[in-house]
Design a protein around this nucleic acid. Structure first.
Lengths: 344, 344
DNA sequence: GCTTGACATGCAACCGATTGCATTACATCC
DNA sequence: GGATGTAATGCAATCGGTTGCATGTCAAGC
């Protein structure tokens, strides 16, 4: 390596190495190494002397070199499909926190819903992490299996047999939402659906259908694709036209758009129409405050990292399929079905 | 290193190394290395052959080993004060994207507004990154200088002399907002203020005062601390009581809360009251859509990484104080001052 | 035919740690 | 006194790459 050639290298001159510490304290490099990693092997006197020298020099063991020799990097990677989607920040935050407590650094990757980009990131990360968490991965199963064979890997909201995964099971919450609407007198409702390929959307749609059938409600499906504020807003017109008195949306963003669309059409919520969201990431900040299904996204991040850690520590690597249940959070966007519509 | 001793090591056996590729393609390790880093030194035929073998084996150069030998890690760190604050995700996303394009991996740190935690993260990152970006750092100046001496470092919304920094200058946008309100006939407005110690809040408050004085508007300040949806909502009552006809909030979250508070009080926006936000992170998803000052937070992330990169590539490391200007985005939460109030 | 040089490739040292296996010194025990 | 054990430390290989400096090959030039 050419040194002294530029600013970066010059900087590293003032970063002391194990050899310098060894020389100054008059011991071998091995001893310095052990003073930090296995001090019980050395005499107290030696440890004290070496550490004193290290302190004076400002020596800190080089993580990179250590990783090369031990294979332990102290890093994990988290790849999400879109940092800016309000579903992810709480998840990221929780994952982060858990990793921090374990002394691990977190690489964050943003796949932008693009499998190719996701794989690129994976390739860059895999060599410098101990494990990976993939949230809402769009990669095909075969690819995921290849990476999972190389490093411990945990999936969030992706259901692949044999790979540790955390699934947010919104079915109970959605069922509760339908029950809630039924009790309020609604007989005819809409499901504003998300991506057809999404595991979450399938879950939610099935839960809506099942519970509605049980309660004798009629359900129509109106798409909002891709799920966003705008597609939610645009769904308002067909929904109102369809004559339903309530709608349950694929996620909070869609629900929020729907709320705006309804307001623009002069439909008052919850007086003349009820809206239920999903994920509970915006609920308190909409007007009216949104009744929604709590998806516990923060828990998902926390649990995923927890499972990863236990796998790293040689925990059982058997089939783990962790389900997070959900519940309904009733706020102000749902109310009794309007009489005139109900009688229709 | 003891191999075969546990799952992790066994896994790494199937991670191909440069030696395996070299052996199979019948060349030296140096040649394989060059096939990836300096292919122009080799014959086309050799490069093709080596790459074919590498592809078949799934070989990817080990970043850690490369970093050890070159001193270049290919990583940068981004530390923010709160991932979950809507201001940051767009910033993170943009920073991420820029780093990605440069082939760099991003460590994300979440300081949770805690200087001690921030320093802990910094210590963990510093040894394995080429540079750092600190957004809204809470660390004291001396600490920041120490780290900046070890690695290229860029600050966002923190103004420390001699350290490269990106400052989001919201003054022009705020001034435009005041002008906008003045033109709509408002004569008496409120500034819903944020944290007193915040650089951004100081900026914004001063801009409001200055422009209002210029236009002969009266301004009162109503605090919303800490800035949040809830404190914004609670500010609605005193604001309405004060008799002003418009308010400009410290950030979008506060503005959104205010919107909700006003609606709860039966005050129609924008018919009888106008609201302006700041940051433009929620504007399109509120109802009514929020008129707000675009703070270009995404640009801040992008520019910060850009500056970091140019510093890494030996660019001028002179005093850089990059200001991002702002502009007003007019949506639906502002309108003409109500006649009855104006005449008051 | 021999020098010259460009081009392609290999050799081996190096980056900064960790760690299995000596080696040394000294105390203990028979 | 010599064998044995144990605690403290050093030696040197290793992790997986990069790179300065040979070395070898072949065609062009004289």
């Amino acid at each position: 390596m050419k040194r002294d050639s530029d600013g970066r290298e010059r900087r590293s001159e003032i970063t002391p190495t194990i050899s310098q510490v060894a020389k100054i304290s008059g011991v071998s490099r091995a001893t310095v190494s052990r003073a930090f990693t296995r001090p019980e092997m050395l005499s107290e006197e030696t440890v004290r002397r070496v550490k004193a020298v290290a302190d004076k020099l400002g020596y800190v063991p080089n993580q990179v070199a250590r990783a090369l020799s031990t294979g332990r990097h102290g890093n994990v990677a988290l790849i999400v499909s879109d940092v800016a989607n309000p579903f992810f920040p709480p998840l990221i935050r929780a994952a982060q926190l858990h990793a921090d407590r374990a002394g691990l650094c977190v690489f964050l990757g943003n796949s932008d819903e693009d499998p190719a980009r996701e794989e690129l990131l994976l390739g860059r990360f895999i060599g410098q992490v101990e494990g990976l968490v993939l949230a809402s991965s769009r990669l095909d199963e075969a690819q995921i299996r290849i990476y999972a064979a190389r490093r411990p890997l945990v999936l969030i909201n992706r259901d692949i047999e044999g790979i540790t995964r955390v699934l947010i099971d919104t079915a109970p919450g959605v069922a509760a939402a339908i029950a809630h609407l039924a009790e309020l007198g609604h007989r005819h409702i809409a499901y504003v659906s998300g991506p057809t390929t999404s595991w979450s959307n399938q879950q939610r749609r099935n839960a809506v259908r099942k519970e509605a059938a049980k309660r004798g409600l009629k359900v129509i499906a109106i798409p909002a694709r891709p799920p966003s504020y705008d597609t939610g807003r645009l769904a308002a017109a067909p929904i109102v036209a369809s004559g339903v008195t309530a709608a349950i949306a694929f996620d909070d963003l869609v629900a929020q758009g729907l709320l705006a669309g309804l307001a623009a059409l002069g439909v008052e919520v919850p007086r003349s129409f009820s809206v239920v969201g999903c994920d509970d990431v915006l609920g308190e900040t909409t007007y009216p405050q949104l009744t929604t299904v709590s998806a516990r996204c923060a828990d998902a991040g926390d649990v995923a990292v927890g499972l990863l850690l236990s796998q790293l520590n040689g925990g059982a690597s058997g089939e783990i399929r962790h389900k997070l249940n959900s519940h309904l959070v009733v706020r102000a966007s749902t109310g009794p079905a309007p009489a005139k519509r109900r009688s229709r």
